[in-house]
Design a protein around this nucleic acid. Sequence first.
RNA 1: UGCCCGAUAGUAUAAAGGUAGUACGACAGAUUUUGAUUCUGUUUGUCGAGGUUCGAAUCCUCGUCGGGCAACCA
Length: 558
Amino acid sequence: MSETPAEARSLNFLEEIVEADLKSGKCESIHTRFPPEPNGYLHIGHAKSICLNFGLALKYAGKTNLRFDDTNPVKEETEYVDSILEDVRWLGFQPAHIFYASDYFEKLFELAVRLIKKGLAYVDDSSSEEIALQKGSPTEAGVENEYRSRSVDENLRLFQEMRDGRYADGQKVLRAKLDMSSPNMHLRDPILYRIKHAHHHRTGDSWCIYPMYDFAHGQSDSIEHITHSICTLEFVPHRPLYNWLIEKLEIFPSRQYEFARLNLTYTVMSKRKLLQLVNEQFVSGWDDPRMPTISGLRRRGYTAESIRHFTERIGVQKRDNLIDVSLLEFCIRENLNKTALRKMVVFDPLKLVISNYPDTVEMLSSEDYPEGAEINSSRELPFSRELYIEREDFMEEPPKKFFRLSPGKRVRLKSAYIIQCEEAIKDASGKITELRCTYLPESKSGADSSGLKVQGTLHWVSAPHAINIELRLYDRLFKVENPGSEDGDFKEYINPDSLQVLTHAVAEPSLRNAKFNQGYQFIRKAYFCLDKDSSEEKIIFNRTVSLKDAWAKEVKKG
RNA sequence: UGCCCGAUAGUAUAAAGGUAGUACGACAGAUUUUGAUUCUGUUUGUCGAGGUUCGAAUCCUCGUCGGGCAACCA
């Protein structure tokens, strides 16, 4: 595919920065990084960051590291590290290196010592409450305390003692000596190190002091020679500190750039909230198919390609945004339309008997992909006298434009024959239990000499050959577009009908051999994928996304 | 109300002082053995007021609105 000049000029602001830096010689090649804290599962917002960081490096022949920002031992777990590794790879990216901030604890300690020696950091004995108080407020300057004037030697000794475990949690911290009256709160002598006698998932008990984000992130970037450190907007106020530390430490000058995080309608996108949904069991886990996590989307049937494509389409900017989830749905439909195997599944079966069809079984061929698809294959389907069709595909008194079955009307059974409805059998309560139809032998699919045109085509399953499957139909997790911005607890806005389980669906027999990592389209209904809960005895499918439904819209209009 | 970031159709995103374009959505139609897909068409936009300029979405000023910042979290 060749790009037109117009497209080539349409770069996002990060690409513009990179091109300018490459052109000016500010850097020879670019080096980015994706730096998650392993305190939760990755979500689609992280996918945006991943695609951005890896995408930039791919486009400009650079490198991208995966770095775990594991500086807070009480929140981080190996389970999360493993899931992040899996999700990044699944998305299709190969990190140049995999690092951990904890790899740098010793170096970071040395850097802190360097800062103390320059008289730019001091050990503070104040409690966290006192420090908060002394910090002032956005409109009031902070005040300097007595510890701020400690000598370099005393600071050096005290910091070493902190490391040696001589103090309890909270007793002392190391702070940068900056400006207690700065209008930027982050510059009011930020804490660099705190004492935590906690077990770290990688370094175990060898450390009892841990660097804060501001004294780990930029320094790790610098150690890895990251040229473009791309993060989200909430870190903008940290940038002056990021640069100050690099300057004073005289280390590799990584530069930070910020973009707006992704927000999606009808979901929440913060690890804190997602963790609540998991812990309070509003969902079955991090990989519940309703979750916006990468593992949830994967289980739901989203492909990595569709997610990558989605992140390209939403673009990247510095303004806050709320992306319509219909764009994500468009991306997966677009992808699955090309790759999903077509199958026939009846969600809500209604028996249909073809009275003039012999008591035999006929094998009929049906295409696996739609006409015009790159792949072209077909499968054999058993057809017999007794079938199931969708209950909603029959109406005794049809409204206008109802192209399906009703008494006396004709429809085609997909890949089979044209049938005509003769009679609806009801039980004592008036519920329809069975349809009696006749078929036109000369209307066989592919060899139709009947000359008849019908308006509707229905999917069906041969009753004696049908297999029972469970269908899990997912809907949006929240009832409102932006649950995070509503008043009160976001959990009040959870959609109580976000999961509907159909246990009596029937499917064509080929679905007994359904595979994981294969998309299926249950024709006229929706895209599905096999769920991990599936077994030989119980075959379970997750609805990825429904097909667009013009008839449903028509009905809604009334 | 101190500092910082931002504002282009319903939602996103282009236009680098020179025709406001694209995608999704919505709506209408054509094709269709999936009411899917595909195709065609329609719809709606530069936050406001000044200024600079032959010319402003773009530059300047003042507003307005939205978001972020006062964790020993990242």
